[in-house]
Amino acid sequence: QVALSRTQVCGILREELFQGDAFHQSDTHIFIIMGASGDLAKKKIYPTIWWLFRDGLLPENTFIVGYARSRLTVADIRKQSEPFFKATPEEKLKLEDFFARNSYVAGQYDDAASYQRLNSHMNALHLGSQANRLFYLALPPTVYEAVTKNIHESCMSQIGWNRIIVEKPFGRDLQSSDRLSNHISSLFREDQIYRIDHYLGKEMVQNLMVLRFANRIFGPIWNRDNIACVILTFKEPFGTEGRGGYFDEFGIIRDVMQNHLLQMLCLVAMEKPASTNSDDVRDEKVKVLKCISEVQANNVVLGQYVGNPDGEGEATKGYLDDPTVPRGSTTATFAAVVLYVENERWDGVPFILRCGKALNERKAEVRLQFHDVAGDIFHQQCKRNELVIRVQPNEAVYTKMMTKKPGMFFNPEESELDLTYGNRYKNVKLPDAYERLILDVFCGSQMHFVRSDELREAWRIFTPLLHQIELEKPKPIPYIYGSRGPTEADELMKRVGFQYEGTYKWVNPHKL
């Protein structure tokens, strides 16, 4: 086992960053958080920038500027975001240094004079007029057009580079997404736009490419001749908990499936790229999406959770019991969808996408189930092999396979070949997804960000279904809070070829 401390991990990262040409360590950078008073800024962006600063992973002359409508001070920003920093008493001095680099400007999102004030403020910072500028839009999409237009007109660096990070949702359907994309691309070049999907920053999602293309053993079996089906799962054990009003506007397909799960599907299904260059990788992902037809209604199961009468606390409440959810809402909190990649490698292999709230566990994984062994000599005792990439929690890679049961006879039983990170790298604290992705933006690497043509294809696949749901308002199937979801989803999976045995229990190697 390799035991690495946080300091050692960050030392390795620093070495990698400083050796590259793309990370300008000594240049002045300004990180501007648009929507600095909001939840995302408070819980994710400010803490992430602090962790990067604490670990010495930001360029040395980096300033952080918050911008929002609320009249706040840096002290206010500190008060609301610091509880999420997880700072230790030993880091007190470092924390003071961090907040000394912070400033805040209040202004409207659609007022040109406010942006001119913001620009004057940035120019007044040390070497601010020639600094590289990175704008993070932690804002609702309704203000994107006004904000990007004003940034472009008043706040661009004339000497350094300018980059803009856009948070999902990128529209509600193909038409609104196209409108937003066309607007942003009329102001910024594609190499300046970073559409963030934080799932692409997760260690195991990034590991998929290495697993596939750096190991000879997987190449020959990664196709329709050997793989019976692919299941991509995202499960949350909690409901909307008072935030249903926002969720109800989008629903589970827009929230998770059309982005996170579809991105994971691309990494499983794509061909080997010409290189690890950002556009070479994204070219292959677009090719996969172009091979997927629009979702067919007979390959869809929609569910909505109801309270568990035997549960406790939140578990007793259904989705419609959330006071922020519109009365009688038919918005799905669970969806199972089957897609097919219609190309030579994957023809006929079902890709089953499942996601839901208020389920029995927290889990995100990719599961490849292989065909049955031909010419069975073990009297149907063999179960199908599976390769599982567990994204969260407890990152893991393992192969479910058959071995001989101890004893006199040739009785096979299920076991696993474990390729888990935790076994080799004991207690290594890896940077989280937002840390990686923000560092990628500083480096100018777009590999783990969504390109406009990729986004367009993703919406093309799901828009007809979303429009049909909005028009017909089908009643989702009720499922109990804390269950596996509607049984109809299991029946759909069985119908397209997935075999669920229920006889195997994964042993978490992190707890051995």
Rank of each mutant, 00 (worst) to 15 (best):
R345S: 12
A358E: 00
K317T: 15
Y398L: 01
N394D: 14
L302H: 06
V338R: 09
Q304Y: 06
R367T: 02
L261E: 01
R390A: 12
V428C: 13
L466N: 05
Q392C: 06
A396M: 03
R384G: 06
Q468G: 15
R456W: 07
K494T: 13
G328H: 14
A315Q: 13
P464V: 09
W346D: 01
V349A: 00
V286A: 08
Y500G: 02
M408A: 06
E435I: 08
V388T: 08
G303Y: 04
N423D: 14
G407A: 08
M264Y: 00
L465V: 11
L492H: 05
A396I: 02
L439I: 10
G307I: 00
V450Q: 06
K505C: 14
E395M: 08
M401G: 00
C266E: 04
V441K: 05
V391R: 03
L320N: 10
A335W: 04
G444K: 10
E457A: 10
N343G: 07
L387V: 06
K505S: 15
Y319Q: 07
P309D: 12
K473Y: 11
N299M: 11
V373P: 11
E342S: 13
G407P: 03
L437P: 03
L387T: 05
L359S: 06
G444V: 00
T463S: 09
E454H: 04
V450Y: 02
T420I: 07
M408I: 09
A489L: 06
H448V: 01
F442E: 03
E361L: 04
K494W: 11
C291A: 12
G313T: 12
D283Y: 05
A315I: 11
R460S: 09
N394E: 14
S415F: 04
T276M: 06
G407V: 06
K505M: 09
A335L: 01
V337S: 14
N427F: 09
T503P: 07
R390F: 04
K475V: 12
R384C: 07
T503A: 07
W506R: 01
L339S: 07
A374E: 14
V388P: 02
K357W: 04
S452C: 09
E414I: 13
L417P: 00
E457V: 09
V441H: 03
V366G: 00
V428D: 15
F351E: 02
N299H: 13
L387N: 02
Y340V: 08
M270T: 06
F378D: 04
D347Y: 07
R254F: 02
V268C: 11
F351G: 04
G422A: 14
E501W: 10
Y500L: 06
D418E: 07
L320C: 08
N427R: 06
Q392S: 09
E470A: 13
L339N: 04
C355P: 03
M401I: 12
L265Y: 04
P486L: 06
P273G: 00
R327K: 14
R327Y: 12
M270E: 04
L353D: 04
A374Y: 11
V286D: 07
C355A: 12
I377C: 10
A364T: 15
E470V: 08
P350N: 00
D418P: 00
P464M: 08
V397Y: 06
L439K: 11
R456Y: 08
K473P: 11
Q446M: 09
G356L: 04
E472W: 10
Q296Y: 13
R327W: 11
S445D: 13
L419W: 04
G311W: 08
Y500I: 06
E342G: 13
R282P: 02
I292P: 02
V325D: 02
N298W: 07
D376N: 13
A489H: 07
T330S: 15
E413L: 12
M402D: 05
I352S: 00
L302C: 08
G307A: 14
A336H: 08
Y340W: 10
G422H: 10
D372V: 03
T276I: 08
A358K: 00
T316W: 09
D432I: 07
F442I: 12
R354E: 00
N259C: 03
G482T: 04
C443F: 11
D310L: 13
L437N: 03
I377A: 09
A335P: 02
W346I: 02
P350C: 01
V450N: 03
D280H: 12
G348N: 08
N427D: 11
S445C: 11
P323H: 15
M401H: 11
V281R: 00
Q392T: 10
K473S: 11
E414V: 15
Q499D: 11
D283I: 00
P393G: 11
T324P: 07
V295F: 08
L419E: 01
R436W: 01
R451M: 02
T403D: 03
K383E: 15
L465E: 05
K272P: 09
V366W: 00
G444S: 09
R456K: 14
Y421E: 00
R345G: 09
K505A: 15
M447Q: 03
L262I: 14
V306Q: 13
R362C: 08
M447L: 11
S452M: 04
P486R: 02
I438L: 11
Y481A: 10
G318V: 00
Q258M: 00
E344H: 07
V397P: 04
Q499W: 12
G482W: 05
C382Q: 12
T316G: 11
K287T: 07
T330A: 14
V450W: 00
L465Q: 07
W506G: 03
K475Y: 11
N299R: 10
C443E: 10
G313M: 12
S415I: 05
A489P: 02
H260D: 03
P431E: 08
L419Q: 09
K285N: 00
M447E: 00
S329N: 04
Q381E: 14
Y434T: 04
M264N: 01
L262R: 02
Y305K: 02
D418W: 04
G307M: 08
L430K: 11
F410A: 15
Y481Q: 10
D321K: 07
E342I: 10
N411L: 06
G497Q: 07
T503D: 14
N259M: 04
C355Y: 01
Q468A: 11
T316K: 13
S275P: 05
E435K: 10
N298V: 13
K404R: 00
N277D: 15
I469M: 13
N259Q: 05
M401P: 03
M447G: 03
E312S: 12
E314S: 13
G444Q: 07
A374V: 10
E312F: 13
G348R: 10
H467A: 13
G328L: 13
R484I: 00
A458V: 02
V325L: 07
L267Y: 01
M270F: 07
G303H: 03
